[in-house]
């Protein structure tokens, strides 16, 4: 897509909007279309930034639960973690988060933002509307355990919280699900929080990152 086209995309063009789109717009971010919504592609030059915070809220995700949930996802060709509070990548780039013995969430592949299915495709499972109930933030780069230690009482250092681990805990006094993404170079924490509290947590994370020079960024930080 050309630069001219990019600059014409504004989040209000779409019916679907991230709860954070105004912050991005106010910061002069560039958007591109993703899952019928505007996804931040760039927040300006972030090449020298050690830690980035990226809003993936408009990326596709869905959840299923119930006694059949794990088997149904596996039958659909997705990789399902062996134990609760773990995540694995599937071959199609989607990440499966296992939150309990009977509940998994599926995050769309990061670059495309899309999922190959939806919870409605799993008729014998109960749907979880995590696309709407939760905002999805990606914290990426260096000092992540130190940054999170300012907000969260769970030890997220590499030895206690390796790649593929999930912590369902309290971050800055709201509930959140932190996933340490597997199979990806560098450290990446996906943070899922109450979508109504997205603006609050976004501010808290940027504040905590400031000490380390962390900044908001777009998808171009990753690709």
């Amino acid at each position: 897509m050309s630069d001219v086209m990019k600059s014409t995309i504004t989040p209000e063009t779409y019916l679907v909007r991230s709860p954070l789109y105004r912050l991005h717009k106010a910061a002069g971010a560039h958007f591109d279309e993703c899952s019928s919504a505007a996804q931040v592609t760039s927040y300006g030059d972030r090449s020298a930034v050690s830690t980035a915070l990226i809003d993936l809220s408009v990326n596709h995700r869905f959840g299923v639960r119930g006694p059949n949930a794990l088997a149904a996802l596996a039958a659909a060709g997705l990789s399902v973690p062996d134990k609760p509070n773990q995540c694995v990548n599937s071959s199609n780039g989607e990440t499966v988060l296992r939150l309990s013995n009977t509940e998994c969430w599926v995050l769309g592949a990061m670059e495309s933002g899309a999922c190959s299915a939806d919870s409605s495709a799993f008729a014998d499972c109960y749907p979880v509307y995590c696309q709407d109930s939760h905002a999805c933030l990606l914290l990426s780069g260096e000092h992540l355990p130190d940054i999170m230690a300012k907000l969260c009482g769970v030890d997220l250092s590499e030895h206690a919280f390796p790649k593929g681990a999930i912590a369902q805990t309290s971050v800055a006094r709201i509930n959140a699900i932190i996933s340490h993404l597997p199979d990806r170079e560098g450290t990446h924490f996906v943070i899922l929080c109450d979508s109504a509290a997205a603006e609050y947590l976004w501010g808290c994370l940027l504040d905590a990152m400031g000490e380390f020079g962390g900044q908001a960024a777009g998808l171009d930080y990753l690709f």
Binding site: P19, R22, K150, L151, R173, D194, A196, A197, Y200, D207
Partner: peptide
């Protein structure tokens, strides 16, 4: 650094633009 969580509905900013007098309702 006091953490005082707040929640906003998707229409929150429209209310501000329309000149709403906002009041707390729980953490909303």
């Amino acid at each position: 650094r006091i953490f005082d969580p707040y929640r906003r509905t998707p229409m929150h900013h429209r209310h501000l633009e329309l000149g709403a007098k906002m009041i707390p309702a729980g953490n909303w």
